[in-house]
Design a protein around this nucleic acid. Sequence first.
DNA 1: TTCGATGCAAATAGTTTGCATTCTA
DNA 2: TAGAATGCAAACTATTTGCATCGAA
Lengths: 154, 154
Amino acid sequence: MTASFHGPPVEAATPNAAISALRANGLRVSAARRLVLEALYAADGPVSADDIAKGLNGRLPPSDLSSVYRNLETLEHVGLVDHVHLGHGPGLYAVAGPQRGWAVCETCERHIALEPQALEKLSAAVRRLIGFDARFSHFPIVGRCGDCLAEPAT
Amino acid sequence: MTASFHGPPVEAATPNAAISALRANGLRVSAARRLVLEALYAADGPVSADDIAKGLNGRLPPSDLSSVYRNLETLEHVGLVDHVHLGHGPGLYAVAGPQRGWAVCETCERHIALEPQALEKLSAAVRRLIGFDARFSHFPIVGRCGDCLAEPAT
DNA sequence: TTCGATGCAAATAGTTTGCATTCTA
DNA sequence: TAGAATGCAAACTATTTGCATCGAA
């Protein structure tokens, strides 16, 4: 069984920086691997393995889905990539970075990236209350957003 | 597509109370439905549909998996049941009750039910910080628990 | 007696694995 | 040229759906 949770993030600002990080980890740089990275950097938010395999709707060349999964796993293991479950759909992948927290509204289904300061304060609250060093990067905070709270209930 | 999130909880202390709630909602009380409820009340924590179909390891008679799923969906719709995703495995179901929050340690994989007061304070913190009315019942807080924080890192 | 619920089988979504082939280092 | 990574097919897990039959109200 593969581990559910991964190691510390490795920040790389560009695909090329990520490729250097791959080499530094003794990993080979193949066309397929390069493409996964390009897709992740080109996407404007977390994307599914399937999105990547389909070349982000044709913006990039398509690739084999199982290779995409294998590469995502490798990249995640190295710490270059993170994955989130924002709901019941497929897991979503993104380049690892300082922003590592999500909230999703169960009413409007919008998903919101948490601001670093909010994230830090939330973590502090969690540590104080339950003695936990919390991440909100793997599963989001689920609830009702401000806009939906203001509206008449459904 | 079925809704990811459900309605308000209906608390029933016993299988019989739950059965009354079913009748009150115009639902029929079949043997299969009764069994799902019995399993949920007999379990000492959240269980998978498969666990229920297998009669909790033989403690109860087995039932058909698809019926179990259908019944869980119905029971959840009525508000008698909740489901959580505590990790990458199957969804886990439990009788709806006042306790509606979870935390899971990514190191020791233990899962912890949140105390009502901690839950309330956490929700208050989340509301203050991101204007969100948070539930921690569908996805847990993921992080490192106190015990694992104390130990030398893996 | 009706129509909601069941049980079986088959379909589906997401993800993983086996294996011969390809290509990076 | 060694062995890491690929691409295809097949397996697998979790869940859903179609449909003829059954049984609760």
